[in-house]
């Protein structure tokens, strides 16, 4: 179904085929298929309700599909929880900022994976805050992410800085792939740029990023490939270097679907 972009020699990191998901009468995903290769940024676009979030949720273990296959790192998998997906190296930045605003950046980054002290203190649950902080600093330097004042509670930071923490957390822990569901939806221009830069930086480390956005200029700025969802179906795959924003909008809304074929849009 999904055609590999020319010149790809490697195996895809993630390959899902014919995913179906119903919510009662709503058929949220219809035979959706998607493949992601190392080192690429895939933009997932579509109108509201197209099924983008549902697809990401299926791929990250939040939801279980009704049918379909999922091959991850060469193996068939089925995640029954986000923790399983995370353990496999899949990280997600959720649409609704899944950070704890009253905790600082280090606590958020290590949330659910806290490092504890060695020995008895560790068994009693004593945190090794120093070590967590050092590791955070190391990783963020590696990723060239700058978060001011790691020790400040996130409520005191701007929206962009907060999203930066959420993105940094995903990026820091991801070993295989990062999903971002509308990571820039709530952000201003400068803050959005920061997140886009982060996406590129992650891609440069070889880890692919799948990100959802409604902002077409952003999508065209950062994506290597654009996948269009409409009514739960993957209806098109666009190359941002050749397709235009109009092409993308039309694929999303379906207005030109009849004559989209052969006009720069690759229909899946």
């Amino acid at each position: 179904m999904v055609k590999a972009v020319a010149g790809r020699a490697m195996e895809p990191v993630l390959q899902v085929e014919n995913i179906n998901k119903h919510f009662g009468a709503v058929h949220a995903l219809r035979n959706a298929s998607l493949a992601v290769w190392p080192g690429e940024v895939v933009a997932l676009i579509g109108d509201n309700g197209a099924g983008k979030s549902t697809l990401v949720n299926v791929l990250t273990g939040v939801l279980r599909p009704d049918s379909g296959t999922m091959i991850f790192a060469g193996e068939r998998v089925s995640f029954s929880s986000p923790q399983e997906a995370r353990a496999a190296g899949i990280e997600t930045v959720y649409q609704d900022l899944a950070i704890a605003p009253h905790l600082d950046a280090v606590a958020n980054i290590f949330l659910g994976r806290e490092l504890t002290m060695p020995g008895l203190a560790g068994h009693l649950g004593f945190l090794d805050n120093g070590k967590m902080r050092r590791e955070t600093e190391e990783q963020l330097t590696r990723l060239r992410v700058r978060i001011p004042k790691l020790g400040r509670r996130l409520v005191t930071l701007s929206g962009g800085q907060r999203q930066g923490v959420a993105v940094a957390r995903a990026v820091m822990w991801a070993s295989k792939i990062v999903f971002m569901d509308e990571p820039t939806a709530a952000l201003g221009v400068a803050q959005t740029e920061m997140v886009l830069d982060l996406i590129r930086e992650v891609r440069n480390t070889g880890i692919p990023v799948v990100f959802i956005s409604h902002n077409m200029p952003n999508v065209f700025e950062v994506a290597d490939r654009i996948v269009v969802l409409r009514l739960g179906e993957v209806v098109a795959e666009l190359d941002p270097r050749t397709a235009s924003i109009d092409d993308a909008v039309l694929a999303m809304t379906g207005a030109r679907r009849r004559d989209a074929r052969g006009e720069g849009a690759v229909v899946g």
Partner: peptide, 24 residues
Amino acid sequence: NFTRFGRYTYAIGSNMAAARRVGI
């Protein structure tokens, strides 16, 4: 202040959905 228990207590109150998502 110093244990995972405390950390989770704050995290749940701060954003319960986020706490669930990170596997708490």
